[in-house]
Write a protein that binds this DNA or RNA. Structure first.
Lengths: 210, 210
DNA sequence: TTGGTTTATTTACATTGTTAAGTAAATTTG
DNA sequence: CAAATTTACTTAACAATGTAAATAAACCAA
């Protein structure tokens, strides 16, 4: 059935073209710039053709969303070599900042926009990429607790808390809410890193009195 | 000049009507539901009339944004009576959660959407409402440090960090990123409060070893 | 009353997501 | 190989949106 196969491939090829075009569009000028018609222009098909490959715009976003998580995983390559779990946690936080600030549009899609989530919940699907990312965090947190680097507590809760912290930093920065507090743009990243540093120092377990 | 005065008043009156209509629209069905035409319908004017009172849609959002901060201030009425600054900080965090979760559309506008910020920076204006809100936080943080409740550090940095933390919680929750970790909706708020609790416990100064 | 200014409307345009109907080519079937 | 059918794509169109330009109506000062 080589014929079926080739067709499948072609179909996937066009799908990929659509996604690539979308990435190009939003990388250039943000998400507002991604329109079905512009995608169609780029891949040199008619706008309606796009609908043969994706149900609607949200489904395109959902697909891009997954690509974003792959990209993010790449940012965490440098973690494997760090044995101290608290250091690893620290680095993980910094990686998160870097990923977010260097890929604002992807970050937007993955953690800020509501649309992709809508698709996932419609499909009864469970945000697998995000889930996977968090379990890595949770594993590290658990290890920190086991080895006495941070106080024992519900790892799920602590992971959620840490994630919220770094997400808060990135999303406030990306949406221009920090400009009043960090005047120069160049200082933004250093300040955010200091904040992560502050948190890590505070949660480091040193045998509290009470 | 009673005549000028009355005109001014009428102008403000219509402005207010526009804002009220917008609030009604987004409170009912979210921000996607706010369109110039629907606003016009509600106030029973033609769509273009709206443009006589606001330069564009973003400017309407910017105005609503201010109203949101007033609303938020009301949520913090209960702080005045708390003398212990760490307790006050804790309560402040919880208030923030409540405000965000109970006014998702306002929260969205004030801290997530990019549009209002764009208007502010175009006007060279400096996000005064947000600024004010943060200085309250900063004052509390400073007091906590002075009285030895939390470790001394740059209050600005710590305030930013704490804000990021609670903002992270609220924004992840509002944008459906916590559903995988907190299955039931009723548990969302308790878990978020636990997270705040966790942070407060961790930053409470107890004389660390190192 | 006349003429100018403010205020509102009508009309219009361009852009958007999306659907319905049609067409031509590729593939399967007899 | 010819006819039927399926596939891949396009054209045309709709409805909603933000917004601008031209126009009319209301109002007021002279």
């Amino acid at each position: 059935m080589g014929i079926q196969e080739r067709k499948e491939k072609q179909k996937l090829e066009i799908r990929k073209q659509i996604l690539d075009a979308s990435i190009k569009l939003f990388s250039d000028e943000g998400f507002g710039n991604v329109t079905i018609r512009k995608i169609a222009d780029l891949i040199e098909y008619s706008p309606t053709t796009v609908y043969l490959y994706f149900k609607d715009k949200d489904e395109i976003f959902a697909a891009l969303h997954d690509i974003g998580f792959q990209k993010m995983t790449e940012f965490n390559r440098n973690l494997a070599s760090i044995h101290n779990p608290l250091l690893r946690l620290h680095k993980m936080g910094e990686n998160y900042l870097h990923f977010g600030m260097e890929n604002p549009e992807f970050y937007n899609l993955m953690f800020i926009m509501g649309e992709p989530m809508k698709v996932f919940s419609e499909m009864g699907c469970d945000w697998k990429p995000g889930d996977a990312a968090i379990s890595v965090l949770k594993a590290t947190v658990t290890e920190c607790m086991e080895k006495g680097f941070i106080a024992k507590a519900d790892p799920q809760l602590v992971s959620l808390a840490i994630w919220s912290f770094v997400h808060g930093l990135v999303s406030l920065a990306l949406r221009g809410r920090m400009e009043k507090f960090v005047e120069q743009k160049e200082l933004l990243m250093p300040v955010m890193k200091e904040a992560v540093n502050w948190l890590i120092n505070n949660i480091e377990y040193t045998g509290k009195e009470n």
